[in-house]
Simulated assay, not measured.
Amino acid sequence: MGEEKRRFGFWNTAATRHTPLEDAQGIFASSMIAALGLSLMGSAGLVASGTAGIAFVLHYLTGVSFGLFYTVVNLPFYLLSLRRLGRAFTVKTFIAVGLTSLITEALPHFIAIDAIRPLWTAVLAGILLGFGLLGLYRHRASLGGVGILAVYLQDRFGWRAGLVQLAFDLVVLVGAFAVASPFIVLCSVAGAVVLNLFLTINHRSDRYIAM
């Protein structure tokens, strides 16, 4: 019984390692927070960062489900994850992407927003996505796509994950001009800057080493 408590409980004798139950709650909570940020962005017509941004652009162009595009766009990155970051990271990331996609699609059925300001929404959504990604990173998972690459580059070369994502996001947001007004794109840029600065400041391997 004592061994089971140490393995599955909320405590652990090895302070630097999460239990399976801790990983499960961390991934679920982080995916829900990230999904709320993505849902707010979709309600305001904004473009998110990373592969979510690509999925939003395709969604706005075709009208096909954002969740479907988000899942498909992430598929090629799982190979990099499996080869460079291991099976556990890949499986947890796959689960996080699936959960985030499902929750993002479901949220409009539970939350109705009557009025929304794009710039304020971009800042709030950026913070929510930052918290979601930070939680996933600390449980050795991500929201797929460039997040996988960012985690690998930070682990391998010490490059800040937030700065890697910001560079990629700026490229994606240039493409957003095809589906959104300049004002909406600028608001989306503000959201991406808030998100990635949040990660740059808060996600440092020398400060948080739990796995």
Rank of each mutant, 00 (worst) to 15 (best):
D23S: 08
A122Q: 05
N74Y: 07
Y208K: 01
R138H: 10
A106Y: 09
I148L: 01
S43Q: 14
S31N: 03
G2S: 14
F131M: 13
S81K: 02
F69K: 02
V185N: 07
R7D: 10
R138P: 06
L199W: 02
K92V: 02
L170P: 07
L133G: 06
L143M: 12
L99K: 07
G37A: 02
G26D: 00
F177D: 01
A161N: 06
K92L: 02
L99D: 07
L61C: 01
R204T: 12
T13K: 13
L68P: 01
A178T: 14
L195P: 09
L195V: 07
G126I: 06
G63M: 06
P108H: 07
L82Y: 11
A210C: 11
S188N: 07
W11T: 14
M1E: 10
R138F: 04
M41C: 14
D155N: 12
Y78D: 02
L107N: 02
I184M: 12
S30W: 00
L133K: 00
R207W: 14
W120H: 10
L128V: 04
F69C: 04
L36G: 11
V193I: 15
V185D: 09
V151D: 10
A112I: 08
I111P: 04
P118I: 03
Q165V: 15
A52E: 02
L186Y: 05
L119M: 13
G135V: 05
A167L: 14
G135A: 07
V91K: 02
L119A: 13
S81A: 15
G45D: 05
S65F: 06
A176N: 05
G175L: 15
A178P: 00
W11C: 00
R17H: 13
E4Q: 13
R204L: 10
S188P: 09
V179F: 07
F8H: 11
A14Q: 15
G2F: 12
